[in-house]
C-alpha cells in the first residue's frame, strides 16, 4: 500500500512502489487532468506540484512522493473559485487543444509563487520544460504577466 496526499486528500492505493505518480493519478485515483505526453520528463504535460514545486509526475515513483503534498490541476481552484493563473488563462483565451495546459498552468503557478513579478526571461526559464504543440506561447506569456499584475 502506498499513501498519497493529493489536493489535500489521502489516498491509499495498492500499486508497485515504482509506478510513476502520473499513472497512479490517472488510472488508480481517477484524476485525468494530469496528462501523458512523453513519459521521459521532456514535455511537461504531466506537471504537478510537490510541496509547491513543479515536478514531472511521469518520472516520479509513487514511493518517493509519500508524505509530500501533491497538487494537480483539479486541486488548484479553491471553493469553486479559480486561482489567478487560471483566471488569467481564461481571460487571454490561452488554450487551443488544451492538452498541455494543465502542466502549463501548474508551472506558471509555481513561478508566480516564487517570483511574483516575472520578466520574460524568468518566464522562459520557468516554462521551457512545458511544450505546447499548438503554439500558445505568446498567450501564455501574456497570461502570466496578467496574473502577476493582479488584474486578472
Amino acid at each position: 500500500m502506498v499513501t498519497l496526499t493529493v489536493n489535500g486528500q489521502q489516498h491509499q492505493i495498492d500499486v508497485e512502489p515504482e509506478m510513476p505518480l502520473l499513472w497512479a493519478l490517472r488510472n488508480e485515483i481517477g484524476l485525468t487532468g494530469t496528462k501523458y505526453g512523453c513519459g521521459i520528463a521532456q514535455c511537461g504535460a504531466c506537471t504537478v506540484l510537490m510541496d509547491g514545486h513543479p515536478v514531472r509526475s511521469c518520472m516520479l515513483a509513487v514511493s518517493s512522493v509519500q508524505g509530500r503534498e501533491i497538487t494537480t490541476i483539479e486541486g488548484l481552484s479553491q471553493n469553486g473559485t479559480l486561482n489567478k493563473v487560471q483566471e488569467a488563462w481564461i481571460a487571454e483565451d490561452v488554450p487551443q487543444c488544451g492538452y498541455c495546459q494543465s502542466g502549463q498552468i501548474l508551472s506558471a503557478t509555481a513561478l508566480l509563487s516564487r517570483t511574483p513579478h516575472p520578466d520574460n526571461s524568468d518566464i522562459d526559464a520557468a516554462m521551457a520544460g512545458n511544450i505546447c504543440r499548438c503554439g500558445t506561447y505568446v498567450r501564455i506569456r501574456r497570461a502570466i504577466h496578467r496574473a502577476a499584475s493582479d488584474k486578472a
Binding site: 489536493n7 489535500g8 481552484s77
Partner: peptide
C-alpha cells in the same frame, strides 16, 4: 468524485470578469 476528493472543485466554476 474527483470534485469531492479534490476539495471543492465543482463542475460549475465561478468565472470572474
Amino acid at each position: 468524485a474527483g470534485a469531492t476528493l479534490s476539495g471543492g472543485m465543482a463542475l460549475g466554476l465561478f468565472i470572474p470578469g
